[in-house]
Amino acid sequence: MTTLTNAAKAFPLTTASGFTRLYGISVVAIEEDCGTLLMLGHPDERSILAATSAQYRRVYGQRILPGRELDDLIPFGVTKTWARAVPGSDSCPWHTELTSPDARHALPVTLVSVDWLEAETMAVQEECPACGRASRTSDTAISPGRAGYSRVRTCRHCHTRWPSADDYRISLYKVRASITDPNACFGCGCTTAWTCSPDCQMTDHRPTTQPLCTTCRAQHNATTWQALTNAGYATAPSDGQRDRWLYTEALRGIHPATAAATWTERRALARKRTLAAHATLSARQS
């Protein structure tokens, strides 16, 4: 965002690119970190909240969480002023320039500071394996069973956490893969130099083809480890989310063979629901 420059190069924000129409309000994210939403006009408080929520849901695929940050948005995060657009560069075709109301090309705008809001990613519905309640959100977190971050769901009712089966959701963001030690624990990622607990150590007596630390190995008995191996845990055909599912379900007392069959069903159901959601969205846009 800039302040008064050469008026001859300025143009009205109504002709600038990148805006999305949400609840009758033109909205675009500005600044380097997209931490501010620019809305054309001076809408009322209810419309500002509706457009902000829609920006997160439709553009970012996220749901704003209720809390103090959202409560403080209207009294502390909203500024109503006047602005116009000025030429930018290849990476950013235009910039916002704050002006006086009587400046050429000036239009009323509302700036909403959103970089402090807490949000969680929306996803296709999946049922909690413990209580059966539906969940439509997921988050990136570390879950047991395989080292590294992954998509994890948390039940709002019983607080059970489980690996998300929704691998089909279209995302604009890619998670950067981290480089890990090939000799690190397959379950938690700890190494001889960086152990997960003071008395933990890597062991050569491992029940899988992958290295495990003594802490992770102690999570299951020999019979369960054999069943996990038979179900494909820590093998090439199994992916990260499946490994985490088998491991966490075994912690809940579910036999790995049963967990493997359930995972296949969850993946198929997640794909079916995602394709249906995309078909509905395409029908609305056509």
Rank of each mutant, 00 (worst) to 15 (best):
P12T: 06
A134H: 08
T258V: 14
H220D: 03
W245R: 03
L212F: 08
K174N: 12
Q285S: 13
T14R: 14
E265T: 15
P256R: 01
G253M: 07
Q201P: 00
R136V: 13
S135E: 10
T214F: 02
G240C: 03
I48D: 02
E127G: 00
W263R: 00
L172V: 06
Q55A: 11
A165T: 01
R68C: 05
Q55R: 09
R273G: 06
A279P: 00
I48W: 04
H278V: 14
M1Y: 05
T280H: 14
Q285P: 00
Y56V: 04
A184V: 04
L70P: 03
L111P: 05
C213N: 01
S53H: 12
V114W: 06
K80V: 07
I48R: 01
D204S: 14
D71H: 11
D44K: 07
P237R: 06
C200T: 08
C185F: 04
D102I: 10
C213F: 02
G240A: 08
T14N: 11
T79S: 14
D239V: 02
L70Y: 06
E120Q: 11
L70W: 08
L49R: 02
R176A: 12
R271D: 10
V109H: 06
H105T: 15
L251I: 09
T99P: 07
L111N: 06
R206G: 12
L246Q: 01
Y149R: 13
K80T: 12
L269S: 10
S91F: 09
T36C: 10
D72M: 14
H278F: 13
M39W: 05
A29R: 09
